[in-house]
Amino acid sequence: MTKRDKLIERLAPWVAVLALVVIWEVTVRLLQVPEFIFPSASATAQALVTFAGPIGMHSWQTLWTTMAGFALGVAVGLALGFIIGSSRFLYHACYPLLVGFNAIPKVAFVPILVVWFGIGSVPAILTAFLICFFPIVVNVATGLATLEPEMEDVLRVLGARRMDVLLKVGLPRSLPYFFASLKIAITLAFVGTVVSETVASNQGIGYLMMSAGSQMRMALVFAGLIVISAMAMVMYELFAILEKRMTGWAHRGQR
């Protein structure tokens, strides 16, 4: 690949974003959609600038609650994944339960959480946690449970205890699965927080969008959407970079 090709490849995503914005702007203007239904890109940008202060404050709230829920999800997900993945019995016993739990729309938990903890940051953190720990559990458990039996024989004959096998082979082996799941989990955590904020909070981007929507200030609502998506993208990229650094051996084909 020449230098020029590389540059083009790098610019491509930005060009795509730009193209989308242009199409958005042109469509809204041509069809003369009123701003309180579908604001144009320029109106949204303007709202972003005008309300930079409140948007900043609310996004900070969303960001930290998401990260708190995510951190909790990683801790619990890792621990649970480790426990379930390290025993065939537990794997079979708990898997259907987890799948069943995951099938419940997490928004259904919000009213319960509000009853328990009141409105505010706690339900947001917990919703983010509930929604994001599942992929982590499944990935870590699968990584551990799919150990090659021959590798296990090689170590067991040496007198390796179950814990030795898990720490020396199982855990490093499941790291690529773990990091892959982090990328999914972080975006899901944003979904959880925002869902909870729209229903049960007076802070955060979700709340901001809800209240702006009720006043027909659609430009501000769209500004909120863009902020969430930008935050989620940045975090996703962060974990993608982390994944490459930590588990380069699993991505050797792309080097």
Binding site: E148, E150, V154, V157, L158, P172
Partner: peptide, 18 residues
């Protein structure tokens, strides 16, 4: 029980990639 005085190798080398 498992005999420590044994070494084993299989058809697949099973080396740890990390």
């Amino acid at each position: 029980g498992p005999l420590k005085i044994c070494g084993m190798a299989f058809q697949s080398a099973n080396l740890l990639p990390w």
